[in-house]
């Protein structure tokens, strides 16, 4: 399933928007479905946004499961760097 972040949230800065993305992604995680998450035409993701979305999924399912289910595409260099920083700084549970 390919999901476009821009279709799910109105911004990528706040906890509230991060939570909206979490709700959308959880649906597929529960079923173990793979997701291709497109950053096309989105702004960079703030830490608050990531904490409420990706961070919650990492807590619930662990890093290995997350990596196996989510593929990030259409990212700019900055968006990619933000996510790299986020994963590098987290306590990644396998």
């Amino acid at each position: 399933m390919k999901l476009f972040i821009k279709d799910i949230v109105k911004d990528t800065y706040t906890n509230a928007s991060g939570y909206a993305l979490l709700i959308a992604l959880q649906y597929y995680f529960r079923d173990g479905q793979q997701i291709t998450l497109s950053f096309k035409d989105t702004t960079p993701t703030s830490t608050s946004f990531l904490n409420s979305s990706v961070g919650e999924l990492l807590d619930q399912y662990g890093f290995s499961k997350f990596k196996s289910l989510v593929k990030f595409v259409d990212m700019t260099v900055t968006q990619s760097q933000v996510l790299k920083n986020y994963f590098h700084s987290g306590d990644l549970k396998s």
Partner: peptide, 13 residues
């Protein structure tokens, strides 16, 4: 919901 990392994120950039 707050795991920090915001300031660190800016420092990395």
């Amino acid at each position: 919901h707050n795991r920090g990392k915001g300031l660190n994120n800016l420092f990395e950039f």
